[in-house]
Design a protein around this nucleic acid. Structure first.
Lengths: 112, 112
DNA sequence: ACATCATGCTACAATATTTGTAGCACAGTT
DNA sequence: AACTGTGCTACAAATATTGTAGCATGATGT
């Protein structure tokens, strides 16, 4: 799977619009999960594997390469961590944490 | 693939935390793309297929079922549309549109 | 009544992605 | 020199996605 660079064709769009590249990226298994799990602080490869519970090293490495290329994460002494842009991205999606709780509650009440 | 109901085990987590169910859902191919494309208004199955450019009917239907079950979209006279909760979710992720442009710009400058 | 059209959607084989297990290569300790 | 922990690769099995064809139903026209 090619890395969804903004400006190039991606899954779901020939236009190369940045949002399409981003949706392609975030729509890949574990991409958002990795960003979410890195938010709590830098992690080594193996620790990140554990935070993600069930990710295979093969896929983790694939995603890390993509996220590095797209400058959302970076590898420093402390391990992998969100880059400046990664942090910005996380800030946008972070309300999902709270929203998902309410959503779960609504689904639960519905089923009663 | 089972539908990531909050409270049940999902890819990446045994805890069933709502955020994990949500990340599982949004991490599936096209899930975010469908929500994004529905934001501009209701669409019939075939029109949605076109908005998504390259989605297969098989997958579109699979995702629509998931999103319906999770009450993010609903099917009315006008076609498929975001539910109340779907709209809320979209509101959270909508800043990604603007953010992705800046991100693309930064990547571009980097490569010069 | 009958053909024509558009709709939502399914069937299914081909293809691509993801998982899971094992383990290599390297660096720092003991 | 063995023992740890690290990042990461190999590769086959399992699973997800695509692409094409087309069915079934309902509305519209003749």
């Amino acid at each position: 799977m090619t890395i969804p660079l903004p400006g190039s064709q991606v899954r779901g769009s020939k236009t190369g619009k940045p949002i399409m590249a981003l949706l392609d990226l975030l729509g890949r298994t574990w991409a958002l999960g990795i960003i979410w799990n890195l938010h709590s602080g830098p992690a080594t490869f193996r620790e990140l594997q554990q935070r993600c519970e069930k990710i295979s090293p093969t896929l983790l490495n694939t995603r890390l390469k993509e996220l590095k290329t797209l400058q959302l994460i970076e590898m420093k002494e402390a391990g992998y961590q969100l880059s400046h842009q990664g942090v910005d991205l996380f800030k946008i999606v972070s309300p999902l944490g709270h929203w998902s709780s309410q959503w779960a509650q609504a689904l639960k009440e519905e089923s009663e």
